[in-house]
Write a protein that binds this DNA or RNA. Structure first.
Lengths: 149, 149
DNA sequence: GCAATAGGCTATTATTTCGATAGGAATTAT
DNA sequence: ATAATTCCTATCGAAATAATAGCCTATTGC
């Protein structure tokens, strides 16, 4: 499951990615444009900042801006920052491996192998798509393709 | 995330799939062989039965058996029965679509498109692999390939 | 028929996680 | 100074998760 937190983070960063770089956008504005709960979004932006994905400017005329180019921030980065590993189960994670408490022999565990495949597939998609690949223009084009297909 | 419940279900069904069909296996035996909490597993087996994936026989010499061939029960079936839809977010689900409360325009939602891709990838894997594809022999072979690769 | 065995069912519980809100401290522009 | 805005901590309620307990009911073997 993708948490609300991660969903909101994605939406906020997508909005930021379509604005001119370096100009701070306030949380209120992000919340309005994305239809997101303001106070919750504040926490999220703070967390994104701690992960180095955005910069902030305090005080009047402050706000948030991307810490890198939209072509450098992947969906995988964002989802991991908010929700942790992509793998459905810790023993199938590359970035945060943890053995199952009840596991007797990992090598013969079919569950782990299957979940590893799922993880790899998700990573293949999310780690190779960047904010810049999903601008509103791109998304509209994709949606239209789906309709005509 | 794959729940413990789903993980235990998968392990139990994998054990069943390697036993002769039609011979009931008791919960205690499944719990021991799979290193699973007995009482919790009882609930799980019951739920699997309600989903029509296993049959049960009560009384002395009772137990559970698969309701179909191992080549007919997919990992996708099992995961969905235990944890619900594969999609990371309801608006990207085929089997249990639900609109996001905060969504203003689904057609231009990049999050939904990405999560739909993830869903499709997971489905591609889980719906096309059956219990019979993951017998302990198969799994050992796969593990050995990984070592030598 | 009766005892033993095993699934069936309901309730309960503890723990954690999630989603969100509140209030105020720190900082900056004017 | 004042207004605006991020930063930080605390807190809350609701839901989900993981599991256990206990009793009921069906079936079998003798």
């Amino acid at each position: 499951m993708l948490s609300q937190k991660a969903k909101y983070a994605l939406k906020a960063l997508l909005i930021l990615s379509e604005r001119p770089a370096g100009v701070p956008i306030q949380v209120v504005e992000l919340a309005e444009e994305g239809n997101l709960p303001r106070k919750f979004l504040e926490l999220i932006m703070l967390e994104l900042k701690k992960h180095g994905m955005v910069h902030s400017q305090r005080g009047k005329h402050g706000g948030y801006m991307l810490a890198a180019l939209p072509s450098e921030i992947s969906f995988g980065d964002i989802v991991r920052a908010m929700d942790g590993p992509l793998a459905p189960i810790p023993c199938a994670s590359l970035t945060a491996y943890r053995k199952c408490a009840d596991c007797t022999d990992e090598k013969t565990c079919a569950v782990r192998i299957m979940m590893r495949r799922v993880r790899d597939a998700a990573s293949e998609i999310l780690d190779n798509t960047y904010l810049s690949d999903m601008s509103s223009d791109d998304v509209e084009a994709i949606s239209n393709q789906l309709v005509s297909a």
